[in-house]
Amino acid sequence: MAPWLLAITIASMVPPTLAAEPVIGGPCDGCEEVFRGQPAATSSTARIAPEGEKGEPLTIRGTVYAADGETPAAGIIVYGYHTDASGVYPSGESRHGRLRGWARTDGQGRYEFSSIRPAAYPGRGVPAHIHMHIIEPDVATYYIDDIHFTDDPLLPPQVRRSSDQGRGGSGLVTPTRDETGSWQVRRDIVLRRNIEKTQ
C-alpha cells in the first residue's frame, strides 16, 4: 500500500476529537462529553430533564462572573447533567446520560436550567448532586464543583466545611420551594476560581 494511502486509512480510523476548547484544571474523566450533542445555538434558559420527566421539578439559576468575582460574564456556556429520580444516569447518546443541558449566559451573566431534583446513587451513600462544567468559548473548558444540597442527609460534613474552596465557587446550595411546590436553587459561578491553569 502506498504510504500516502496508508496515512489516509489510519487517519480515517482515529475518531475525531470532540473537544473544541482545551481542558484545563487537571485531569477530567469525560470532559470531552460536554461537546457531544452540544446544540449549535443556546440561550440563557435551557432544560436538563425534559418536560414530563418523573421527579420533583427543580429550577437552577445563577450568575456567572469573571475572575474578579464582580463583573458578569456574558456568552459563557454552563453545562450540567445528573441522575434521574431513581439515582441512575438514563442512557443516551453520551456517557453522561440523557439528562443533560447547555445554557449560554445572557448580557448580565445569567443562566437558568429547568430540570428535576436528582436522586442519590442507589445503595452507595453518595449524596445527590448535579455535575457542572464551564465552556469558555474559544478559550477552555473545565469542570466546577458539583451542586450539592444542604438538606441532603447523605451530605458529608467535609463538603459543607470546604464549600468556600470550591472550583468555580461554592456548589453548596439551599433548596427552597416556590408557591407551586417546585424546588429552587441558586448556583453562582466565578470563572477560573480555584482552577489550575495547566492542562
Score class of each variant (00 low, 15 high):
127 P>Y: 00
140 A>E: 14
139 V>F: 07
129 H>D: 01
164 D>E: 15
171 G>L: 01
149 F>D: 04
165 Q>H: 15
154 L>T: 09
149 F>L: 06
156 P>D: 09
150 T>K: 10
148 H>Q: 10
144 I>C: 06
152 D>Y: 02
144 I>V: 14
145 D>M: 08
131 H>W: 05
172 L>Y: 05
127 P>L: 00
152 D>C: 06
152 D>N: 06
140 A>M: 13
172 L>A: 08
136 E>W: 15
168 G>V: 13
137 P>K: 03
159 V>S: 10
145 D>A: 13
167 R>I: 14
145 D>C: 09
135 I>T: 05
139 V>E: 10
150 T>A: 14
142 Y>P: 03
140 A>L: 11
158 Q>R: 15
153 P>R: 04
164 D>T: 11
170 S>R: 04
134 I>G: 00
156 P>I: 06
158 Q>L: 12
130 I>A: 02
158 Q>H: 14
128 A>W: 00
159 V>I: 15
139 V>Q: 12
138 D>I: 00
130 I>W: 01
139 V>C: 04
134 I>A: 00
133 H>M: 03
138 D>R: 12
137 P>E: 03
154 L>C: 09
153 P>K: 05
150 T>F: 07
146 D>G: 09
155 L>M: 01
166 G>V: 10
140 A>V: 13
128 A>I: 01
145 D>I: 06
160 R>K: 15
156 P>M: 07
131 H>V: 10
